[in-house]
Amino acid sequence: MTGLARAFDELRFGGQRTLNLRALQPTALQATQLAERWLREQQVLGAGEALVITGRGNNSIDDYSPVRESIVKLLPSLRRRNVIDGYAEHTPGSFVVTFAPVTALFEAPKRRREKPAPAPRPPTLAGLDEATVKLLRDLAVMSLAVLGVNAPTRAQLEDEMLRQFAALSAALPDGADREALLQQALRRAAEEYEAG
Score class of each variant (00 low, 15 high):
98 T>V: 03
86 G>I: 10
134 K>H: 12
123 P>E: 10
98 T>L: 08
118 P>A: 14
114 E>W: 15
106 F>Q: 13
97 V>F: 04
115 K>I: 06
127 G>L: 15
76 P>F: 04
100 A>N: 05
129 D>C: 06
102 V>H: 06
87 Y>T: 03
105 L>V: 04
137 R>K: 15
132 T>L: 09
133 V>R: 15
127 G>D: 11
126 A>K: 14
120 P>A: 15
77 S>P: 00
78 L>F: 02
77 S>C: 10
104 A>F: 01
104 A>T: 01
115 K>P: 03
101 P>M: 09
95 F>S: 01
122 P>D: 12
109 P>V: 06
123 P>I: 07
101 P>E: 11
92 P>G: 04
110 K>C: 06
105 L>F: 01
101 P>F: 04
91 T>K: 13
83 V>A: 07
114 E>V: 03
77 S>I: 07
133 V>D: 07
125 L>M: 11
81 R>N: 10
91 T>F: 06
124 T>G: 05
104 A>R: 11
87 Y>E: 08
126 A>M: 09
119 A>L: 12
92 P>Y: 03
120 P>N: 09
103 T>M: 08
114 E>N: 12
88 A>K: 09
77 S>N: 08
99 F>G: 02
121 R>Q: 15
80 R>Y: 12
112 R>H: 07
117 A>N: 09
106 F>M: 11
104 A>Q: 13
107 E>A: 15
133 V>Y: 05
116 P>T: 07
119 A>V: 10
77 S>L: 15
111 R>C: 05
128 L>S: 05
76 P>I: 02
115 K>C: 08
96 V>W: 01
131 A>C: 01
138 D>V: 04
122 P>Q: 12
130 E>S: 15
105 L>Y: 02
83 V>N: 02
114 E>P: 00
103 T>D: 06
100 A>D: 04
115 K>T: 13
94 S>W: 00
94 S>G: 05
130 E>I: 06
75 L>W: 01
100 A>G: 01
81 R>F: 04
123 P>W: 03
97 V>N: 02
122 P>S: 11
105 L>S: 13
84 I>D: 00
125 L>Q: 13
129 D>L: 10
111 R>Q: 14
103 T>Y: 07
110 K>M: 14
98 T>A: 08
117 A>K: 12
116 P>L: 11
136 L>Y: 00
96 V>T: 07
79 R>A: 13
78 L>Q: 04
131 A>N: 12
116 P>K: 11
120 P>S: 12
129 D>R: 13
95 F>G: 00
75 L>G: 00
